[in-house]
Amino acid sequence: MILCCGEALIDMLPATAADGSACFAPCPGGAVFNTAIALGRLGVPCGLAAGLSSDMFGQRLLEALEASHVSTAGCVISARPSTLAFVTLEHGEARYAFYDENTAGRMLAPKDLPQPGASVTALFFGGISLACEPAAEAFEALALQSHAERLVMLDPNIRPAFITGETRYRRRLDRMLAVSDIVKLSEDDLGWLLPGAEPATDKLARIQAMGPPLVLLTRGSKGAAALLPGGDIVQVPARPAPAAASGAGDTVGAGDTFNAGFLAALAPDGQASKRTARSLTPKAAEAALHHGAAVAAVTVSRSGANPPWQHELDL
């Protein structure tokens, strides 16, 4: 199975109350949580390792995981509050304000996380859980302890406004890049990691030289690309989003869902391996990129992070 390691939180999404006033609606979310939910809905055996609260929001997160067939055996439950992320939309693009002090997710220590069992063949890391100590230290330790035997995928999903210790955070990402087999970056992530006007292809090569043999780049409406272990670059166009019956749609969870679609194409049975990532052919990479884009397109057509079930895909 694939174990997704990182935050689960409540997205407070813009909404309209019955009297027409503006309000926020709570929805389960978090970058790593979204990837786990998407994998579960695609039929891929998976689980979540995270700190969850016993409060009403934490209960809602647990119910959402179980409804999408995601194992919660790796979750650590405490009485600390749930993390909240208030979302605003600018031309359909999501912007976030996080409330995360002393929360169940943030206060995880390395000793709290259970060790992956023999059934776990791949680990996925990312999101704000890598920026906030002590949880960030716990997830880094898990990656460093597990990478020799298991595939590691990393999507840092960088939120600059949320980073309080940039030097520590950059060093942590460097160490995790060095042990990752697959790294997925957005254009914004790539620009933050490697500032400057250097071509994206050169920047991807620099990231690859740090350790990960397979580097993915998502470019929104411009599609996605992969730099393969042998140096080949494969590109695919974006998949048009299906029309939403309500007219709603945003980019919340799009990249997280792309990750799940890519992994599902590589390992539909959840048995992802380091060998698979390190020997990926251009044809297989193109198919996985297309699948990631198709799954993400459905999420973009909906309000919030609401990944599709396998039966909803028309590939």
Rank of each mutant, 00 (worst) to 15 (best):
I2F: 09
L9N: 07
L9R: 07
I10N: 02
L13F: 12
T16P: 07
S21I: 05
S21R: 09
G29R: 09
A31F: 07
T35S: 01
V44D: 01
V44N: 00
D55M: 12
Q59F: 11
E63I: 13
A73L: 11
G74C: 02
V76N: 06
L89G: 03
E90G: 07
M107P: 06
D112T: 08
Q115M: 15
T121S: 08
S129R: 00
S129N: 02
A131E: 06
E133C: 04
P134H: 10
P134I: 02
P134A: 10
S146G: 12
M153A: 10
M153V: 04
L154W: 00
I163P: 01
T164M: 15
G165V: 05
T167V: 14
R171F: 04
M176D: 00
D181Q: 03
S186I: 03
E187T: 10
G191Q: 11
W192A: 00
E198V: 12
T201G: 08
T201K: 13
M210Q: 05
P213V: 07
L217V: 10
L217N: 07
V234T: 11
V234H: 08
Q235A: 15
V236C: 06
A241D: 08
A244G: 15
S246H: 13
S246A: 15
A248C: 13
F258I: 05
L263E: 02
A264N: 03
D269G: 15
K274H: 12
A284Y: 02
G292E: 01
V295G: 09
V300C: 14
S301W: 01
S301M: 05
S303H: 05
G304H: 04
P307E: 07
W309T: 09
W309P: 01
L313A: 13
L313I: 13
